[in-house]
Design a protein around this nucleic acid. Structure first.
Length: 491
RNA sequence: GGCCCUGUCGUCUAGCCUGGCCUAGGACACAGGCUUUUCAAGCCUGGUACACGGGUUCGAAUCCCGUCGGGGCUACCA
């Protein structure tokens, strides 16, 4: 076998049976960080042995998601092929889709079969189910009884169903990077099924072979794989493979502490992407889920994490997905964006809503609305009134019960006059021009109806700021509309 | 049921290995206040946690034992 240097090589091995899960994204992050920290290689392997459930579109979603997060893989599918050095590695470690590695598995399957370490099982699913029920009925843990273990020839009238591995008895021990020493009792497994047939390997077998063939040095994955590890170690031993190091990360949990599922939150990364979250926020959030530095910092870029992230400080217990914290981080990263950066993206979003606007106007609005935005996607729902005055009820113009219609109309009329006569309508000038009226009538009495007239909403930025952004003409038009509304509606 | 993992504020966690600096620190969330024309933002203040029970020790969140709780796996899925 061509030699691949004994370096740090980690892998992400997702199965494309659904959109990239937020938990998978975190596993990817940790693997990527580990590779970057040790000058290692981050391998992406697609575990698509389950032909029914694997879909090309999910593979695409995976590639997209990883790239969006900034977690580019060094080896794997969908990479540019003009790198000579890489193609040399690929010829020994690739291909990177399990569906394309059938011959490799077949070779090892045959070896196990020839050496009597694996065998064909002729038991049908029905047989097995009956056996399982019988054991359960006796209060025994269900496991395969080894019926076909020592059959050398195909029994008459029976077809081979699967290939089983002869699980040796005895303890399996290994050291987990996060959990320390682990010990399992092999006699509890029964002979595990490693392939449906020579062409169709199953997870535990395929993954074990690939980790060896791809020279994986550290298997970093979710805790849900902890109980697969002893099985894979047994297969390694039977085949004379080198045992990689293992690290099992705690799971991301629902608020009820079960494994994170769609019932409680969006589990697909693409969901967060389309909701307008920033990759930096997601990365930061994912890193802080189950890990924390010695000090009290909370904000980490991918670059910071390469420096600071420490495997030893990973939590052992699962962590509940906390949307509030994500949103807070998202806001923090939004603050770092320049208006310039946001503008282009927003132009795009507005275009999709059939709103045409010019850049300078948009920039002004962004400045005003920034503190109110968690994601860019929310922009239109909070700031849409700048572009189109929404329908509103005339009653909204009344600040408090004690206000009367005539007074409000009067204030609105006076306001129009103030705006008209104001040379400049920047906020500061406006504040000075309105001072007299406000002193006389009270802030709320003046500003509330103005706000509603200008925004059609009860919650908005300072009305004077809105005027500045909207301009004289549009502001006057909106106030006039409000007056008309009051006249036509005697409440 | 069996095997395995795990248990500090509501949540993410610092502290645990190397007992005393912990009347347990930070962040998010929450509550109150300031500001105030609304909603945000900002600033200030506050409350809540070592799962429980035994030991060991002058002293335990930290060490030992037990109990209880939570989770994962238990497929011809990965």
């Amino acid at each position: 076998m061509p030699k691949v240097k004994e370096l740090i090589r980690v892998r992400l091995a997702p199965s494309p049976t659904g959109r990239l899960h937020i938990g998978t994204a975190r596993i990817a992050l940790v693997n990527w960080l580990f590779a970057r920290q040790h000058n290692g290689t981050f391998v992406l392997r697609i575990e698509d042995t389950d032909k029914e459930r694997s879909k090309k579109e999910y593979e695409e979603d995976l590639f997209l998601g990883l790239r969006w997060l900034g977690l580019e893989w060094d080896e794997g599918p969908a990479l540019a092929t003009n790198d000579k050095k890489r193609s040399a590695v690929e010829s020994t470690c690739g291909p990177y889709r399990q569906s394309e590695r059938t011959e490799i598995y077949e070779k090892y399957l045959n070896r196990l079969l020839d050496e009597g370490k694996a065998y064909y099982c002729y038991c049908t699913k029905e047989d097995l189910e009956a056996e399982k029920q019988a054991m359960l009925a006796q209060g025994l843990p269900p496991k395969y009884g080894g019926h076909c273990r020592n059959i050398n020839q195909q029994p008459a009238g029976k077809e081979p169903q699967v290939i089983r591995f002869k699980t040796p008895e005895g303890k399996i021990e290994f050291k987990d990077l996060i959990r320390g020493n682990m010990a399992f009792d092999g006699s509890l497994f029964g002979d595990i099924v490693i392939a449906k047939d020579l062409k169709t390997s199953l997870y535990n077998f395929a993954a074990t072979v690939d980790d060896e063939e791809m020279h994986i040095s550290h298997v970093i994955r979710g805790e849900d794989h902890l109980s697969n590890t002893p099985k894979q170690i047994l297969i390694q031993k039977a085949l004379g493979f080198k045992e990689p190091e293992y690290g099992h990360l705690p799971l991301i949990l629902n608020p009820d502490r079960s494994k994170m599922s769609k019932r409680f939150a969006d589990t697909a990364l693409s969901e967060y992407i389309s909701r307008g979250y920033l990759p930096e926020a997601i990365v930061n959030f994912l890193a802080l889920l189950g890990w924390h530095p010695k000090d009290e910092r909370e904000i980490f870029s991918l670059k910071d994490l390469v420096k600071e992230f420490d495997f030893k400080r990973i939590q052992k217990a699962g962590a509940v997905f906390n949307q509030d914290k994500l949103d807070w981080l998202q806001k923090e990263y939004m603050k770092n964006l320049s208006t310039e950066e946001i503008t282009d993206q927003l132009m795009e979003i507005l275009k999709n809503k059939n709103v045409s606007t010019d850049k300078d106007f948009l920039k002004k609005i962004i400045e005003i609305e920034r503190p109110r935005l968690t994601t860019l996607n929310e922009f239109y729902s909070v700031a849409g009134f700048f572009f189109r005055l929404p329908e509103y009820d005339a009653k909204l113009l009344v600040w408090r019960e004690t206000e009367n219609i005539e007074k409000i109309k009067n204030i609105l009329n006076l306001s129009t006059a103030i705006i008209k006569s104001s040379k400049n309508i920047d906020r500061a000038t406006l504040a000075a021009s309105f001072a007299e009226l406000i002193n006389k009538e009270g802030r709320g009495s003046v500003l509330w109806p103005l706000r509603v007239a200008l925004s059609g909403q009860a919650a908005s930025p300072d009305p004077l700021e809105i005027i500045e952004a909207l301009g004289k003409e549009e502001s006057e038009r909106r106030i006039k509309m409000a007056i008309t509304k009051l006249e036509g509606n005697l409440l």
